[in-house]
């Protein structure tokens, strides 16, 4: 019982903030609760969640993956290209895409673990390398011939307002949550993130944890890249260019510690929901486009601040 209470304290404030905001919006704008809008919200949440999880895994380790968006873009165009130029069946292309994402992540992990250079520097370099391969292959031209099945997946809903793309996101959330909650590998990653020395003394293979984490991050980034293709209906080489900052925003709002050792999957998901909600609110209230960026910054600052203030008070009460 105490455990659940403690767990919920990570994201309870965020949940209240997000749900409160949603209620506020739906009172002011009845359209907000329309089936299509909920679909749109969930659709946006699905992709952002995948991106956030890709970074969250690496944050758990106390590292960063700057090449996240670059992997997403590369996998996205490779996925589209395999189907367009190679005539590969969509399901096979998905597997190939996941494998490519995994491979990119593995390269990051291997270089970080074996060369003993900070992941920040390694992924900064691979960011350029993967993006270069992407541009070199596509010549910066989008790939248009996306099979109808893939396009359908990008727009279809399971039932009512629940988009199909929520399925991979949900699977990823459950998987990552399980991983960091109860799978030994995930706990090992957290242990390495919290105290590498102690983890090594307890017999945890630090390099294995590092490699596994980066591979997972690459896998999730690759999945996100393919989701983006399905959503956009085009194999855009620019996919992933803007992922870096949002990928950090949600986990950090959700309470993850950047130095490693602690992440909250639920917190990150609520963080994603909050950012999506803020974005939509700014559209809904027809905010002057010139003010959008400014307000978004203030609101993020406020959300993080409120969450922090609340958790501070809570620890004091204990």
């Amino acid at each position: 019982m105490t455990a659940t209470l403690r767990l919920s304290s990570d994201w309870l404030g965020l949940a209240i903030l997000t749900l409160g905001g949603a209620i506020f919006l739906s009172v002011l704008r009845p359209d907000f609760l329309s089936s299509y809008n909920i679909f749109v919200l969930l659709d946006a949440i699905a992709l952002s969640t995948m991106i956030a999880l890709g970074q969250l895994a690496v944050i758990a380790l106390g590292q960063t993956n700057l090449s996240l968006g670059s992997i997403g873009g590369l996998v996205g165009v490779a996925f589209a290209g395999a189907m367009q130029a190679g005539g590969v069946a969509p399901w096979l292309a998905v597997l190939l895409g996941l494998a490519l994402g995994l491979a990119c992540g593995l390269i990051n992990g291997l270089l970080t673990a074996r060369a003993g250079i900070s992941a920040f520097v390694i992924t900064l370099a691979t960011l350029a390398a993967y993006k270069g391969v992407n541009l070199g292959l596509t010549q910066a031209q989008p790939l248009y011939d996306i099979p109808a099945v893939v396009k359908a997946v990008g727009t279809a809903s399971i039932s009512g307002p629940v988009p199909v793309l929520l399925i991979p996101a949900a699977i990823a959330v459950v998987f990552v949550w399980c991983l960091f909650d109860r799978i030994p590998l995930g706990r090992q990653i957290l242990a390495v993130g919290a105290n590498q020395h102690a983890a090594r003394l307890a017999g945890i293979s630090v390099s294995r944890a590092v490699i596994a984490t980066h591979a997972l991050s690459g896998l999730l980034a690759g999945a996100a890249g393919m989701m983006a293709v399905a959503r956009l209906q085009v194999g855009q080489p620019t996919i992933g260019d803007d992922w870096l900052i949002p990928s950090f925003t949600a986990p950090v709002i959700g309470g993850a510690i950047l130095s490693g050792g602690y992440v909250s999957v639920a917190g990150a998901v609520w963080g994603v929901a909050l950012v999506v909600l803020i974005t939509q609110a700014l559209v809904l209230f027809q905010v002057d486009p010139y003010y959008v960026q400014f307000l978004l910054g203030l609101l993020i600052l406020a959300a993080v601040g409120v969450n922090r203030f609340r958790s501070k008070r809570q620890t004091k009460a204990v």
Binding site: V252, Y290, Q293, G297
Partner: peptide, 27 residues
């Protein structure tokens, strides 16, 4: 003053500063 990590703070102020500039100059 807030004790927040500089990453989060500057992530937000990046938007605030840039957004403020865009508002004032209309780009």
């Amino acid at each position: 003053r807030t004790g927040m990590h500089s990453f989060v703070v500057t992530l937000a102020t990046m938007s605030v500063f840039f957004g403020g500039m865009i508002i004032l100059t209309t780009a």
